[in-house]
């Protein structure tokens, strides 16, 4: 056996044990009679990078705008660090940094003037501001462009300036609405690197995005929303590994191996064996009350199968997203 992966406890579960930073409960919000959010509830754990995905018009931006106090929920409650977004607006605003889905910048200002403006608006003293601006510009790699006019910057750079603006008050929670939209691949990758660095600094990041592959890689938790209803909210690991009520693993054998489908079906507790086309690879679904992964693995080793991998079958986030948003929760 060259590489055998044993599933580990998802890191988000550790975070989830902490008090939730964002607590959305039973929120309903309508626009001109059209229900944008329909009894939406989810939580975002501390220091997690939580993805928020859904089709266009699903209610992502409305949810984000309610969390960042720009909209008042018509029914339900939203709390950030225990502060209600309706009654403790200022306290919430002090703790969050919201980046909308469009550039919200003053084109005629230089990068430095823009960040300085927002730093002052957050009440930072002049001396503190200088250091803070240096730090956020360094973090977003914009130090060299500090005296450039924002209107003359590329989209990627303007997005970084927006991110620097969001960071200027050192918020504990970042709410990012489609931060990578319209960016070229390089700018996107760089942005994701910055987000990873921010997560490393202990920030809680709630990010809405359409780029599912990047979210799957970055996020440790995800909420999927469709037509105003939450379809899934929880650990990314769980979403990608649990395809049904029984665990499914993927067994990958060396190219030289013969077909072992019938052999595998003989094993106790096996519910379904699906041979994947074109290679000696099988999707093994079993009843975990009858057998275990260790027992299965021991059996494979006994049979002397040329195992290349035996790991929990991870779906792509795209698949999970399509399943949940098209057919509903399984």
């Amino acid at each position: 056996m060259s590489e055998t992966q044993i599933p580990e406890e998802a890191p988000v579960k550790v975070a989830a044990k902490l008090k939730p930073v964002i607590d959305v409960r039973d929120v309903v919000h309508s626009f001109k009679g059209r229900r944008a959010l329909d009894h939406v509830s989810f939580q975002v754990g501390a220091q997690s990078l939580h993805g928020f995905v859904g089709p266009n018009g699903a209610g992502k931006t409305t949810s984000l705008r309610i969390i960042c106090t720009l909209l008042r929920p018509q029914i339900g409650s939203v709390k950030v660090f225990g502060h209600d977004v309706v009654y403790d607006t200022r306290e919430v605003r002090r703790r969050i940094g919201f980046m909308p889905d469009h550039f919200s910048t003053y084109r005629q200002m230089t990068v430095f003037e823009y960040i300085d403006f927002f730093a002052a608006a957050y009440g930072l003293a002049l001396k503190q501001r200088t250091q803070t601006i240096d730090d956020v510009l360094a973090l977003t790699d914009m130090s060299a462009r500090r005296n450039d006019l924002i209107g003359g910057l590329s989209r990627g750079m303007q997005q970084r300036v927006s991110l620097a603006r969001v960071l200027v008050n050192d918020p504990q929670v970042l709410l990012l609405d489609e931060p990578a939209s319209g960016l070229d691949p390089r700018a996107r990758i760089e942005l994701m690197e910055i987000l990873k660095a921010l997560k490393g600094m202990g920030k809680t990041i709630f990010i809405s995005s359409h780029i599912l592959s990047e979210l799957a890689e970055l996020c440790d938790a995800v909420t999927i929303i469709d037509r105003g209803k939450i379809k899934y909210s929880g650990s990314m690991h769980d979403l990608l590994t649990k395809t049904g009520q029984h665990p499914t693993y993927r067994l990958t054998l060396d190219d030289t191996a013969a077909d072992v489908t019938s052999q595998l079906e003989q094993l106790p507790g096996i519910i379904q064996i699906e041979a994947l086309t074109g290679r000696p690879e099988y999707r093994v679904t079993f009843d975990d009350t009858v057998t275990t992964t260790n027992a299965l693995l021991r059996q494979f080793l006994e049979w002397d199968l040329p195992i290349l991998g035996f790991a929990a079958d991870r779906r792509h986030l795209n698949e999970a997203f399509m399943d949940l948003t098209e057919r509903g929760v399984k």
């Binding site: 106090t69 605003r93 909308p100 469009h102 919200s104 003053y106 084109r107 005629q108």
Partner: peptide, 17 residues
């Protein structure tokens, strides 16, 4: 005018002011 044109009201309204 600038706030509307640059869609910056959203950034201003999330300030603790």
């Amino acid at each position: 005018h600038d706030e509307i044109r640059g869609q910056t009201m959203v950034s201003l309204l999330t300030l603790p002011r």
